[in-house]
């Protein structure tokens, strides 16, 4: 009996491993193709070992195309949005965790609903609102800044400006981040804060020296998800930005892909590789906090 079942479980294990390996290869192959193609002097549409290694595609991204600018735009808007998300979700998640207000549960489900609705469906009203806001801020700023108007509006405009994109990106990521932080703070006993109160810590000291360190793993998780999701967002920058100097990396990639006369797979692969790197770095950075043990003084 035992022999049969052992054999059987052995076969199952083998089957499981084979399946997993096939799936893994399936998942990894596009990235392998991309990485190889980005340094191949003779790129083909199929997977192959580079004929000879070249960095021309990368040079092209930065020298001929506006790659540096796209990259900087992406990084600036997404990092700013992530920062806003972490601050607001940290404070808001804390409040939502500790509050006993009656509207707490309805509010939490309402913000989740925002997340569930397809953002494409929200684009039209969102655009309308942003346009109105943009006109408003334009009217205020125009007499103040005079000849610098165009430049200032690229910074603070809601349409075709950094501020608008940052705010919209942050708003999109906030619901999930708020939930993460709320659930996280639910798991942080009030005892820590009360002990700090008795130790004579002011509100600011409690936040800085106790709550933020305690919340770091949660903030890292919330920040990571916000960064990755905003970094991958394509539709919002496409709709909200029109000036060439404001383009972000995914838009640059998209435009390069659309050029009808020639599709330069080497350039596209290099662009895509560059596009991937910050996400990978963000993940490896946040992983440290995610796995950080949190057993502290709570368990006996």
């Amino acid at each position: 009996m035992a022999g049969i079942s052992e054999k059987r479980s052995g076969a199952y294990t083998l089957l499981a491993y084979v399946t997993l390996i096939v799936i893994s290869i399936f998942c990894v192959l596009p990235f392998v193709w991309m990485a190889l193609a980005s340094i191949d002097s003779n790129v083909q549409l199929f997977l192959k070992w580079p004929d000879s290694v070249t960095f021309d595609h990368y040079t092209k991204v930065f020298a001929e195309e506006n790659g540096v600018r796209w990259f900087a735009n992406s990084l600036f808007t997404v990092l700013s949005a992530t920062f806003i998300v972490m601050v607001v979700a940290g404070l808001g998640g804390y409040a939502l965790s500790r509050s006993k207000a009656w509207w707490k549960q309805p509010f939490l489900y309402a913000i989740l609903l925002i997340r569930v609705l397809p953002s494409t469906a929200l684009l039209v009203p969102l655009y309308k609102i942003l346009l109105t806001a943009n006109n408003g801020i334009g009217t205020v700023l125009r007499p103040l800044v005079g000849e610098h108007y165009r430049f200032v509006m690229q910074l603070f405009g809601f349409i075709d400006g950094y501020l608008g994109l940052i705010i919209v990106l942050a708003t999109g990521q906030l619901p999930l981040a708020l939930w993460i932080m709320k659930v996280f703070f639910d798991g942080v006993p009030k005892d820590y804060e009360e002990a700090a109160i008795l130790d004579g810590a002011t509100l600011v000291q409690r936040i800085r020296r106790v709550l933020i360190p305690l919340a770091l793993p949660g903030l890292a998780a919330a920040g990571l998800f916000a960064f990755m999701s905003a970094w991958g967002d394509f539709l919002l920058p496409l709709i909200l930005l029109s000036s060439p100097e404001l383009q972000t990396l995914p838009i640059g990639l998209f435009r390069a892909f659309l050029r009808v006369n020639e599709i330069d797979y080497g350039l596209l692969a290099a662009l895509a590789t560059i596009y991937l790197i910050p996400a990978v770095i963000a993940f490896s950075f946040a992983r440290r906090f995610l796995v950080q043990t949190f057993s502290g003084g709570v368990k006996g």
């Binding site: 005892d191 820590y192 305690l214 949190f294 502290g296 003084g297």
Partner: peptide
């Protein structure tokens, strides 16, 4: 405190 509330960091 019952939980000791030692700061884990």
């Amino acid at each position: 405190f019952q939980s000791y509330a030692l700061y884990p960091h």
